[in-house]
Amino acid sequence: MRPGLAIALKLVSVTLFVGMQAIVKAASEVVPAGQAVFFRSFFAIPVILVWLAATGHLRTGLKTAYPVGHAWRGTVGSMAMGLMFAGLAYLPLAEVQAINYAAPLLVVVFAALFLGERLRWFRITAVAMGLTGVLIVLSGRLTMLDEGEAGARAALGAMLVLGSATCAALAQIQIRRMVSSGETISSVVFWFSVTASVLSLVSAPFFPWTYPGVGMTTLLVVAGLIGGVGQICLTSAYRYGDASLVAPIDYASIILAVAIGYVVFAELPTPRMYAGVALVVAAGGLIIWRERKLGIERGRARRGMTPPG
């Protein structure tokens, strides 16, 4: 374990992902979400292939025993990405981040429903607190429905991003299933990019693609490249550090999103958003703290067991 490197890699990944979302948001006025998904996924593939070759995982990254599982994970993951990109056109960058924080909380709920994981009262309370925070953020937009077209657009954006968080949580459940069955993370990363690239083409007849000009096209290619690098940094971070150490760094994204939103898009977060985010971060921190404590207790128990034989 190399905790310092793990933290640095996670910070880099968070920064890259928020930067990628900012590019997609800037392009959202002229580029439909499906087209943005294509750029994000297709141009990440070369980066991922180079990484797999450099780490000696090219064969395992391309080989899979679960094509149907990858198809399901790719479909749900593509929906999550497309819905989030669509929501970026309607909401401030920081609010998109705040609502997306529902995803890890929903993973806890879905893990209990679909994987049979035990849900204790401590975790139930933390999840309820976090989802309350998300509802506080959402309520600021849903109450704008009677404010004309602008209010309706904001409410639509909130629903799109909430749908994205739900799909992202379902994708994480599918990843757990595949990894627990022996599938490698490298194959999950590679085949998701391939699947998302193909599925994004389906959107073209319904939401016609456009040519946004050389400058914006270049930025979208960059978004795909940095998305691939961000995915590699994220995967590597969990290789060098425990999840309980690395996971809390996700919440740095709200700071970056607020800063970029203010400087680039002149967006100012509302007090309601800050209140909701505070609850979500507190809930996530409690879950991570509890998991770390249980992990330490399990480790002590394992060390105290009588060796077999």
Rank of each mutant, 00 (worst) to 15 (best):
E147I: 00
L62P: 08
G116N: 09
G299L: 03
V189W: 10
G140W: 06
L83R: 03
L220I: 02
V24K: 04
A247G: 00
A102F: 12
A158Y: 06
S197Y: 07
G4L: 06
R59D: 13
T15V: 01
G304Y: 00
V134M: 02
M1L: 12
A103H: 14
G133W: 09
L91Q: 09
G304F: 11
P205F: 12
A247C: 00
I45R: 03
V12N: 07
K10P: 05
A165T: 04
W121G: 12
G74T: 11
A22M: 05
S164H: 06
R290S: 13
L142Q: 02
A6R: 03
I173G: 06
A237T: 00
E183T: 05
G224V: 00
Y251N: 14
A86H: 06
A33W: 07
A8T: 09
V202M: 14
P205R: 01
A33L: 04
A27L: 03
P32H: 05
T195A: 15
L93M: 07
W209K: 04
A65W: 12
Q35C: 03
A86G: 13
R141N: 14
I48L: 15
G304I: 00
Y274I: 14
I255E: 02
F190K: 07
A275V: 14
A196I: 01
T218W: 13
N100A: 11
T60C: 10
L113W: 15
V18P: 07
L256K: 00
T143F: 01
G151F: 05
R300H: 15
L93A: 01
E149Y: 03
A36L: 08
M129R: 02
V108L: 07
R59I: 12
R176G: 05
P208G: 09
M84Q: 15
G87F: 06
A53M: 14
A275R: 00
Q97S: 14
M129H: 00
G224Q: 06
I23S: 07
A252G: 13
V30K: 11
L138W: 09
M84A: 14
V281P: 07
A128W: 07
A128V: 11
A94Q: 11
I45N: 08
T270C: 01
A65Y: 12
F39K: 01
R302W: 03
S187N: 12
M79F: 15
R272C: 03
S41G: 01
H70W: 13
M129E: 01
L131I: 04
V30W: 09
L219Y: 08
E117M: 05
A86L: 11
G304H: 14
E297L: 12
H70Q: 14
E183P: 08
A257N: 02
E183C: 01
Y90N: 09
I255A: 14
I173P: 07
T184G: 00
I287T: 02
T210P: 11
W209A: 02
L16W: 12
T210S: 15
A65S: 15
Y66V: 03
G4S: 10
L170C: 13
V194Y: 11
S200P: 04
L156P: 06
F43A: 04
A282Q: 03
L138R: 01
A252N: 13
K25F: 09
K10R: 14
A102P: 05
Y238W: 04
G241R: 02
S41F: 10
I99F: 08
S164Y: 12
E95P: 01
H70V: 06
I48D: 07
M159Y: 10
Y238P: 01
R239N: 11
A283F: 09
T235Q: 14
Y274L: 15
R40P: 03
